[in-house]
Amino acid sequence: MIRDITIGQYYPADSVIHRLDPRTKLVGTLAFILSLFLFRSYAAYLVATVFLAGVIRASKVPFKFMVRGMKAIVFLLLITVVFNMFLTPGEPLVRIWKLTVTREGLELAIFMAIRLTYLIIGSSVMTLTTTPNQLTDGMEKGLRPLNKLHVPVHEMAMIMSIALRFIPILLEETDKIMKAQMARGADFESGGVIKKAKSMVPLLVPLFISAFRRANDLAMAMEARGYHGGEGRTKMKPLHYQKRDRAAYLTLVVYLLAMYGAKRIAGF
């Protein structure tokens, strides 16, 4: 049913990675992605592979869930690989008709493919092991220093979590409006893309009106319960770093050093 739609792709399991502080996971993912772009060498990517495999193993999430995220970017990946292969100038390797594959191009294509794949898998590990709520909580607390630069961190996190709460409600509402209009002869199924898109317009208007009405009600309910922004707010479940988070950060540092070392020492 439409109510059961889960936002994001959280995979519930009881693992070390699941229990980590969301901030640790955010920082870890970011560092991992950066490391892929900073240390460009086969040896370093070998280290990254081992690290990623270890994390996936520890997360207890089946590997096929990680690969699922790849489907969305297969096309992008192909384009990147092909363009890099054929359009990078350098020492020619193979010549097909007018197109030349260069050594540099091939290398670049391979690196790009590895990077993109690991980037997606790496961030999937985070979204699969962290609920959207934890993620917004982690962002709110992790980005708090930005408050000093007048970035409304708390408000942004609040907007995200309210959006998450209302997505299923609005989906249900869309369903209701659609059925009500179908009962009066509206046709959402037939026709080409343009016709289908046009038939959505009468759906959007009532949906928008209802969304605004809900927003108005919700704002009133929030005010009635004493909401006045992030200042002076306490938390029921505040985030605290645990021992395992310290261990995770240590592992991360070791990984980064290994990446650096692999690039410097192995040199290929």
Binding site: P132, S161, L164, R165, A221, G226, Y227, M236, K237
Partner: peptide, 18 residues
């Protein structure tokens, strides 16, 4: 339109948190 939290206990905590 008056439940703010995505989990029941988080919603109940909203007022006291404020």
């Amino acid at each position: 339109n008056q439940i703010i939290g995505t989990v029941v206990d988080e919603d109940v905590a909203f007022g006291p948190e404020n």
